[in-house]
Every structure is written in C-alpha cells, then in structure tokens.
Amino acid sequence: MSEPVKVLSAFGSIYGHRPEVALRIKGIPYELLLEDLPNNKSELLLTCNPVHKLVPVLIIVTRSICESLIIVEYIDEAFEGPPLLPADPYERATARFWAQFIDQKFARPFWMSICRADGDKKEEGEFFKEAKANLLLLEGQLKGKRFFGGDSIGLVDIAASGLARWLQAFEEFPVLHRWAKAYAGDERAKECLPNMDELVSKFTAVRKKLQAMAEVQK
C-alpha cells in the first residue's frame, strides 16, 4: 500500500503508541500528528473520530480507523511484513482475549487511578491489590517465551506496551520485568516510547491540576 499514512496521537498516550509500533514493525513510514489534549482537539480529530473524539486514529488518504487494538489488527491485515497475530485461528482468538484482558484490567483502570482527583487511598489500594493478582496471570502467559507473541513482538505485547516502562521498576514480577526490558529495548518500540521522566512529569502535573480543581469545587 503506497498511500500516505498518518497517525493522530498525543504525547504519552499508551493507546497512541500501539499503532506507531505496529507500523514500525511492518516497516511502514507514517506521519505522526500530535493532538493537544484534552482541551484543544483539532478539526481533523473531530472529523475522523466523531463518535469518541479520542486518539489514536489511523488515517490513510480519506479513510480513518479508530480504537487502538482495532487499528493494530487492521495494520496487520492491510500491510505486508512480520505478522502481529498468529496464523492459527485458536491462537489468534487467544491473543485477542489477552489483549482485551489487558485493556479491561490494566490500561483504562490504571490511568484513571493515576488521574483521580480525590486520591482515595483505599480505592487505590484495592486497585493495586487486584492489579498484582492480574500481573501474576500475565506472568503465566509469558513463561518460557521472550514475548507474549513468542520470539517476536505481537498483538498482546503491543496491548501491554503501556506497562513496559512502569514494569521495569517492579522486580517482584521477574518474568514481566524481563519482558518489559526486552520490549522497551527493542529498537522499533524504543523509538516511539515516551521518555519516562517526561511521562511521570506529565501525569504528576495532570493529577495536581485535577486535585486543585476538586478543591475549588468543594
């Protein structure tokens, strides 16, 4: 496919990283367009994703695809290059299951916990207790393998990519710790992973702003 490819994303977006690394694995050049979220959404974003008005969005000429995991599967089907999903139907279904598991149990709840304005310690403690149990389940899927996809990065690794930076600090999960270092060390992933210091700084600032707004509203 020779049409120009664009990715609408935002700095630090774990969802925006997914189509980027998928395109890099496939060797597809693309133009990255960063949105100033949440308050200054471009007309292009509102036009290409009128339902959710969120990033990422994959744009190929006049066609747009939304939702990060759907985009990754589209890239796998539409472009030649290393496969991101297994060829076997059962293994493909299993990969999709674990990718959805990661989104449901980690991605959205994790960032909601970070950005909570009230800082409810009890609720946060319950979330992290459940998260540890789910991390053990993920470790079980990794044993004996370099990546969830085997010897190379696949759909589940890309779904879990938002954890890669953070899990490098969690040595109590040695299998995931090793995976996180391997993922973040992959040249294709490294090129589009946000700098950890900048990431922490951004989300610290977001949380402080939300807490300040919550205090004003009391």
Rank of each mutant, 00 (worst) to 15 (best):
M1G: 09
S2P: 12
P4K: 00
V5P: 01
V5N: 02
V7N: 00
L8A: 02
L8W: 00
S9E: 01
G12A: 01
G12C: 03
I14H: 11
E20C: 14
E20R: 14
V21S: 00
A22P: 01
L23Q: 00
I25R: 07
G27P: 05
I28R: 02
L34W: 07
D36M: 08
K41F: 04
L44I: 06
L44V: 08
L45H: 05
L46N: 06
T47G: 09
C48T: 09
N49H: 04
V51S: 04
V51D: 00
K53H: 06
K53I: 07
L54N: 11
L54G: 09
V55H: 06
V57M: 00
S64L: 02
I65M: 04
L69P: 02
L69S: 04
L69C: 03
I71L: 06
E73G: 08
Y74V: 00
D88Q: 10
Y90A: 08
Y90I: 07
R92C: 05
R92M: 04
A93E: 08
R96S: 10
R96A: 09
F97Q: 00
D103C: 06
Q104N: 14
Q104W: 09
K105C: 02
K105S: 02
F106A: 04
F110I: 06
M112P: 11
I114T: 05
D118T: 12
D118G: 12
K121T: 10
E126K: 15
F127H: 10
F128D: 08
E130K: 14
L135Q: 00
L136N: 12
E139F: 07
E139C: 08
G140I: 05
L142T: 04
G144M: 07
K145V: 07
G150K: 13
G154L: 06
L155W: 01
I158D: 01
S161K: 08
L163Y: 00
L163F: 00
R165E: 13
R165Q: 15
W166V: 13
W166L: 15
W166E: 13
W166P: 09
W166A: 15
A169W: 11
F170G: 07
F170L: 13
E171W: 08
F173I: 01
P174M: 05
L176C: 06
H177K: 06
W179E: 07
A180S: 02
K181W: 10
A182K: 11
Y183H: 08
A184Y: 04
E187D: 14
R188D: 01
A189Y: 03
E191P: 08
E191D: 13
E191I: 14
D197R: 10
E198R: 13
S201M: 15
T204E: 14
K208M: 12
L210Q: 10
L210A: 12
Q211A: 15
A214L: 15
E215L: 11
E215K: 10
Q217N: 14
Q217T: 15
